[in-house]
Computed example of a mutant assay.
Amino acid sequence: MKIKDLIEKRAKVWEAAKNFVDTHEDENGVLSAEDSAVYAGMEKEIEDLTAAIDRQQRAEQREAELNRPVNSPLTGKPYMAPEGKEKTGRSSDEYRKAMLNALRSNFRQVSNVLQEGVDADGGYLVPDEYDRRLIDVLEEENIMRRLATRITTSGEHKINIAAAKPAAAWIEEGGALTFGDAKFEQKILDAHKLHVAVKVTEELLYDNAFNLENYIIVQFGKALANAEEDAFLNGNGTGKPTGIFDGTGGGHLLTTLTAALKSDDMLDLVYGLKRPYRKNASFIMNDATLPSLRKLKDNNGAYIWQPAYQAGEPDRILGYKVETSAYAPKDGIAFGDYSYYNIGDRGSRSFKQLNELFAGNGMIGFVAKERVDGKLVLPEAVQIMKLKAD
């Protein structure tokens, strides 16, 4: 079944479920045991359809990535590039081809063009084309890289923040002026090292039919993205970025619930955020939190959860987008404008080959490294609501 058909079917089941509850609740809003079982079946069907939609969307994304041609066909006559615009260094086509040949030959065919990428440890900087495609994978897998503000840094990066602003005041004619102070603070983006390593058999490495380039980029990208997202959400700033759910450097803690979550609590969370930040705000929560939210109604009996009716569109709660992550804490919900979370990438990512470590097993090791930091520069831009512990 196509994604469009699945989405339409889910919408119909959801409408039927809402109508079923509205027509079978007693005066106290309670369903009988038999009706509860019927509603649970409808809800299970919605969850299954949602899982099927997500699965097909991921399959389409993988299919598009795998079908992307490695080489572009020649569609015009050869021409001479204008002077001054020829790609050089790590951006050159020669560097990219030499990098791939070096990987396939266990770095036994290192040419002069590859010497531009040699570092003190014998690692090789990723060509510019590789680095951009790795960023593509990180964006697809990591919700925070899509929502946050990204900065490329060459050293310790300082972000200036207006902590206090002068205020206007009324005075009588001839009265004395009052002077306010403008105070400033700084947030510092440093660089924490993150790496991922894989082993590849020599047979696969030397087999031209094996898409080595795509394999390494996709696997490294997913592993880095998962580790990054965990840190951007939960990191404590010690050896890793500071996450938005961190109790010290994260978002502002609005409230800690002592009872089960209610629709009024979600309203408090939305309107607890200052109006300027609500324009681009969205929710971040764990997938396990959604089932309880989907059952909540407002004072008019309407469900506050609104499923997406178009492919690619996120579900919404109270009109705001919902982002889910397996790394978000199960006892917390964030709501805010995550563009105030700054991600600092320190230079380019790098590849490194391990010649001897797995030589006895007939395998070659590869390591990808990056240096990155992340901080919420304005804690008031994100509000956190802690849920009651089970």
Rank of each mutant, 00 (worst) to 15 (best):
G249F: 05
L269N: 10
A197W: 00
T256A: 13
Y215W: 13
A231V: 01
A197E: 14
G237I: 02
K222N: 11
V270E: 11
F232T: 10
Y271K: 12
E229R: 06
L273H: 10
L267P: 00
N234F: 01
F245E: 08
T289N: 15
L205W: 07
Y277G: 03
I284G: 12
A231N: 12
V200E: 11
I284D: 10
L253M: 10
N214T: 11
T256P: 01
L224S: 08
N208R: 13
N211Q: 13
V200K: 06
A281I: 07
G247M: 07
A223K: 14
L205Q: 14
I244Y: 04
D207R: 02
G250M: 03
V218W: 10
N208V: 12
G237E: 03
T255Y: 02
L267W: 12
L253I: 02
A225R: 01
S263K: 06
G272P: 05
A197R: 13
A227Q: 14
E213Q: 13
A197G: 13
K262Y: 01
G235I: 03
T258M: 05
E202L: 11
V200T: 09
I216C: 11
N211I: 02
A209P: 00
P291Q: 12
F245N: 03
P241R: 02
A260N: 15
E202R: 10
N211D: 15
D268V: 07
K274L: 11
